[in-house]
């Protein structure tokens, strides 16, 4: 539970309430430009939201980019620049999927997450990215315990595909031991029928859906969430091909926070 401080929940109080920073003086110092691997990876980007301007406007969008706000998104310090607060009283935005997210063919999503107000007791789901027809999700499933304290719903970050055509399938990483304030990288790949999921540049877990989806299986995109326990999300990026393990590792190494005690 959040601790009250000056009448505000502590985690809210910690949210830096400052204006979005200006772009760095030298654009080539940006790791996505300076690092040859990341720079090459950027060729494959179809949608990217860094939230650095405290805005739901994408930094990159291969398709239409005008967001339709959903609720009142909140922003805070991110793993790089600024981040979106997902869950709690925050909000998100709807974005067109066409050209921005090749969900019907093959691609990947990378996303940094940081638990902000996770109780590890009971909490709803926090969607980071989902389709508006509820078919594909990148989310944290909040935990649920019964009156005896027995887990009735495991808490986990999940990459879900739910549709009649594909059937339902899910990849997940448990989040029971995720401490508040630690940034983690998720990479979700799809090359239907195979979907795979990596945490912090680690090995991909994989499953397959029963049948490849089609264009009709997806709606538009909803980035961020007004429900569930507060989580910071940053550097949301969609690619038009799956990422390799090396690329996932590289993404993680490029922005991973300092080890414990080294901050």
């Amino acid at each position: 539970m959040a601790i009250a401080w000056m009448g505000l929940p502590l985690t809210l109080a910690l949210l830096p309430n400052v204006a979005a920073p200006q772009a760095p003086a030298d654009p080539r110092a940006d790791p996505y430009v300076a690092d040859p691997t990341l720079r090459s990876l950027m060729d494959w980007v179809t949608l990217r939201l860094t939230f650095d301007a405290d805005s739901m406007l994408p930094d990159m969008a291969a398709g239409a980019f005008e967001p339709t706000l959903h609720g009142t998104p909140q922003f805070a310090e991110g793993v790089k620049g600024r981040a979106l607060v997902a869950g709690g009283e925050s909000g998100g935005a709807f974005l067109a999927r066409r050209l921005n997210a090749p969900l019907e063919t093959r691609g990947a999503i990378s996303l940094w997450l940081c638990p902000l107000e996770w109780t590890h007791v009971n909490g709803g789901n926090t969607e980071f990215l989902m389709t508006t027809n509820f078919s594909l999700y990148l989310q944290r499933q909040g935990p649920l315990h019964n009156e005896e304290g027995v887990v009735t719903r495991q808490e986990a970050v999940q990459f879900l595909m739910l549709s009649e055509v594909t059937g339902n399938n899910c990849l997940a990483f448990g989040t029971e031991d995720w401490p508040l304030g630690k940034w983690r990288l998720l990479v979700a790949n799809w090359s239907w029928p195979v979907m795979s999921f990596s945490l912090d540049g680690g090995e991909f877990q994989s499953v397959s859906v029963k049948q490849s989806p089609t264009e009709a299986n997806f709606g538009d995109l909803l980035v961020g969430s007004a429900g569930g326990e507060k989580t910071l999300m940053d550097e949301l990026t969609i690619y038009r091909r799956p990422l390799t393990l090396d690329e996932a590792r590289h993404l993680y190494d490029a922005l991973k926070p300092p080890a414990e005690g080294q901050r």
Binding site: Q22, A23, P24, P27, R28, D30, Y32, V33, R39, M42, D43, V45, T46, L47, R48, A53, S55, L57, P58, D59, M60, A61, A62, F65
Partner: peptide, 19 residues
């Protein structure tokens, strides 16, 4: 062309360099 960087008023868009 690769054109993904999104104009945003007078804000500097580093992503233009990735396009």
């Amino acid at each position: 062309l690769l054109t993904r960087g999104v104009p945003d008023g007078d804000r500097d868009i580093i992503a233009a360099l990735s396009d």
